[in-house]
Structures are given as C-alpha cells and as structure tokens.
Design a protein around this nucleic acid. Structure first.
Lengths: 248, 248
DNA sequence: CCTAAACGGGGACGCGCTCCCCGGTTATTT
DNA sequence: AAATAACCGGGGAGCGCGTCCCCGTTTAGG
C-alpha cells in the first residue's frame, strides 16, 4: 500500500465536520498558514456528481421513510456503491446536515421570489405557503430529533435567511391589513410544516391535492379580519426553538 | 411440566387474532357446540388490570416515539415484566390494534358528546376538533404504515361509529350555514390529525398551546362564508382510505 | 498513455430487539 | 385457611439488520 487517499479523505471530512466547517470538496481551502504547501488535489468531476446525487437521493428517502432509512438504501437509490456514501458522509449527521441545508436554501429562495414577484402581500404569503409545501418542508419535522448540529455556521446562515424572508413576508401582509395581526412567523411555519408533513407509507403524492386544500383553508383562517380570538401570543421562531431544543 | 397455561393462552390469542375475533380475556365465550365442556378459567383480576395498563402505556409510548418503540420499553413503562406483554399481545399488530381501538372509542365519544351538548353546530365542530387533538388523534398517523389488520371487525365497527358521528357534526353545521359547504369529513379529520400530530423528540406538551392556535386558525378558515375557492372536491373518508391503503 | 484517485459490492462485526424459560408470587377455590 | 393452578418477573440466548471496511477494478485527468 503506497497511499490510501480514500481513508485520508474520509478522516479529513470527519475532522472538518467536527470543527464545524463545510466538508464539501471542490471548495479550495486556502493553505493553512505554516502548513507545508500540501497540494490539495482538485476533486474529480464524477465525484462531485455523485455527491450531488447522494444528497438528492437522501432528501427523497428522508421524505418518504424518515431520517432513519438504511444507508445502503440511499446509496442504491442514488445509483452508487455504499462506500461512496460513507466516504462523502462518514456519519449520518453529515448527511442530514447537507439535506437540511439544501432544503432551507430552496425555501429561502421561494420566500424571496414570492416577495419580489407578487403584488398583493397576502397573495405572496399564499404562494410561499403552497410552494414550500411542494418542497416538502414537512419532511424537516422528523429530523428535529436526530442528533445533528443545529448550530452549525452554514445552517445558522441559511436559517436566518429563511427567517428574515418569511418575517418580512408576514409583516408586509399585516401592514397591508390583509393578514390578521395576532399570528407570528412561527405560527405560519409550523402549521405549514405540519399540514404538509408526509404520511408514512404513502408513496408520497397521492395526498398532494388534499394537502393543497388544507393549506388553503388554513390560509383563509389567516386572512384579516380575524374571525376569532386566539389564546396565547403570536409564535416567534425563538419560541419554537426553545421548545424543540430544550438542551440548547 | 404438568400444564403450561401460559403457552396455551398465547397460542389461543394468536389463533383468535388471525380469525378476526377479539382476544380480550374476560369475555365468556359460549361453549363451542360439541366441544367437551372444557372449563374456561375465568381470568384473574390482576391480569386484566395489567392488560389495561399495557394498553395505556402503549398509547403513551406510541404517541411519543411512534409505533416502533421497543416492546420491553412499553412493559417497563407499564410497570410489568416483558413476558406479560408478550403473553397478552403475541405480536405487535395485536397491540397496535388495541390502542387504535381504544383511541377511536374515545374520539367517537367526544364527537357524540359535542353534538349532544353544544347548541351552536359550528361550536360543536370546534369543540370536537380541540378535544380530539387533546386525545392525540394525530398519533394515529404513524400507525397507518404498520401492518395491522385495518379490516378487523371490531375496528370497522368503531370506525363507522366515528365516521357517522363526525359526518353528522359536519352536516349539521353546514345546514345551519355556519360551515362552508365545500369541505368534507375527510378534510376535517386529516387536517386535525396532521396539525395535532406530535413532533418526535418533544416530550409532548410544550407545543400544546401552539397546536391550539393553529387548530383555531384552521377552524376560522372552515367557517362560512368561504373566503376562497378550493380546488378538487370535498374529501370523504373513502377518498382517504383509498389513498392510504392502495392494497385493500 | 500513465498515474492516482474514486468506485463498487461482498462480507464480517456488533448492536439491539425479540422471544423463551423457570423459579417465585398471588388470586381463587373448598 | 390451606391447596392449587394461573400468572408474573427478569435474565439471557438467538438472530436479523444495519454499519462499516477492504481490496480488486474502473475511470478521469495530465
């Protein structure tokens, strides 16, 4: 054995993950000061392709079967060997992290686009809600219990992007008098996630039309003027984080 | 070994379960025709107590951790040995069956009481919805995938009781012009289940106030007059069954 | 064309759940 | 109240399944 780059890469990935850095290859990391100019071999094209395929497959499998789905099955779905999966994501937390990150990015984009392109601010909320459901935000729920670093820098950045966009969305609609004033961002996010949450066992899409109906009904309840008086206070996202992650 | 009643009981339970009969002890089964008057030993009082404890513990554990929770943990929560659990419910399907049955009974009672005691028909819907959520109907969702006999006679009876009561509840509210006409029983049941569905990892009750808010918002959307036009058709319970159980 | 990194899949390890066995305990029976 | 039979409890063996690694082969890049 002259050199075992597989093992080296895997070890590096694990270490980077622990330090809270992104383990994604393809990102040229500047030489670390005194480190003796170790040539960072640029990753191969097919390697990146496979990595992307794995994340996509993982997202689909997580949505359908939850985050406990066997590693080997994910690899099979992605059309690669299981070793490739283990090389890229030495532990499950890494994979979950990547999937959550990708999903949040999509949702943030949706919110920003809805805000930019929709004239009526309540219509923007509606469009965001339905599109977010299509992205299966509900699949995030089962991942909350999984032990993955919720304070990872990359994740915090993306989360703040989502929060900011949706908060703005809500605020505009409320200022326009189209959205009732006694609801918060947290109310919207959680209810959407719950209503769009996939049922286990259903291949996935048989329910889509019903989910749409229920979201629209909920949105009707959100519209101003309020038809009833709500108990408690508008839920912020901090409220939710406090209740779901009592440890942090 | 002179006689092993434990094994006999377990075997009998398994057979009865397959035949679609209730395996509950305490129910005196009339002597089966030509069978030579085998004395059916009346079950002991503590045995029934333990059985009831097990069902209660199972319901709690299912709500909190899903129907895959380890058998031994359920026994521990119930404060009995694991053998007792295996004696009463030789396979997981039996236990799930019992829990679902118990839950459906409670929900049916809630619906009937709401209808009888509430003057305003929409208020009856609201009361039913909130009470059903308190009973954790949402916990039913994760059990849909589990392989348990959904056509078991006992279950069908209870299911029809629920359906009839809720359908009547909806119909009355619609006839009174208080509930929008373009929603069906299925819309109500599924949305409530989803909104009240417990999040994994949360010990359970931190979210209760938020769930209440979201249910009330949804109910506001349900109120007549309709604020938007819904796509598709009102969901009946048959629609849902067809989509969740494609095999049957 | 050559080199080295990445791939694939077969198989062993180990964990955790299931399930049973048997000595002790408790409710019923006369 | 004593006898008896059913029931209970918990410890441990069996085993299925997911995780993880090894190594011969393939493939991209120079």
């Amino acid at each position: 054995m002259t050199s075992t780059p597989d093992a080296v890469r895997a070890g590096a990935a694990r270490a980077a993950s622990v330090r809270g850095e992104s383990a994604a290859p393809g990102r040229l990391c500047p030489e670390q000061g005194a480190a003796p100019a170790r040539r960072v071999p640029k990753p191969r094209a097919d390697a990146l392709r496979n990595r992307e395929r794995l994340v996509t497959a993982a997202r689909e499998m997580f949505v359908e079967f939850g985050p406990q789905v066997p590693y080997d099955e994910i690899a099979r779905r992605a059309g690669v060997g299981n070793a490739t999966l283990y090389r890229n994501f030495p532990e499950r937390a890494d994979l979950v992290h990547e999937v959550v990150l990708s999903l949040m990015g999509r949702v943030a984009g949706i919110a920003e686009r809805a805000m930019a392109e929709e004239a009526d601010p309540f219509e923007a909320v509606r469009r965001f809600t339905l599109a977010a459901a299509d992205e299966r935000v509900g699949a995030l729920c089962p991942m909350l219990d999984g032990a993955f670093d919720k304070e990872h820098p990359d994740l915090v950045v993306e989360r703040e992007r989502v929060e900011e966009a949706v908060a703005e969305l809500v605020l505009r609609a409320q200022r326009a008098g189209r959205l009732r004033a006694d609801v918060g961002v947290g109310d919207l996010m959680v209810a959407v996630s719950q209503l769009a949450r996939p049922l286990p066992g259903t291949a996935g899409d048989a329910f889509a039309p019903f989910v749409r109906r229920h979201l629209l009904l909920f949105l009707d309840g959100l519209e101003a003027p309020a038809r009833s008086e709500l108990p408690g206070t508008p839920a912020t996202l901090e409220d939710l984080r406090r209740d779901t992650c009592p440890a942090s």
